[in-house]
């Protein structure tokens, strides 16, 4: 399974970024080989309009099985993500990536 997080940093100790479109980083954890990688999303953050769809396109390219975020994507972005089969889990704000991942494993995060 590939798990993607919207994050404010690039490590397990970084906080979940509650925003979707203007999230600072997209962090990807690949359970198969245990690697953590990240994509800098700051160029999108600086867009005046369409940050949500631009980030959705990036997520789509990563094509994770699960996306863990805070408030959840807005209207446009969620329309975009509906084109994929990924599971979107929300309300993970105020957690570190590690905490969010643990909550996810216990099945405690809400589905969007």
């Amino acid at each position: 399974m590939k798990i993607a997080f919207t994050a404010s940093g690039t490590s397990w100790e970084s906080k979940i970024d509650p925003r979707f479109g203007r999230a600072e980083f997209l962090v990807i954890y690949d359970e198969a080989n245990g690697t953590l990688s990240s994509i800098d999303n700051s160029s999108v953050k600086n867009e005046a309009h369409g940050a949500g769809t631009a980030t959705a396109q990036k997520i789509f390219e990563i094509s994770p099985d699960v996306l863990i975020t805070g408030n959840g994507p807005g209207d446009h972005a969620s329309t975009a993500l509906r084109h994929s089969k990924m599971k979107i889990l929300v309300n993970a704000h105020d957690m570190t990536l590690k905490q969010a991942y643990e909550q996810y494993q216990k099945g405690l995060l809400n589905e969007f």
Binding site: G52, A54, H76, A80
Partner: peptide, 23 residues
Amino acid sequence: CTKACNYHAVIRLGPSIVVFPEL
């Protein structure tokens, strides 16, 4: 098209081009 749009109203999702009318 996706590069021509400054508003990210036209994006590519896998094998599809998706248009966001409101943007």
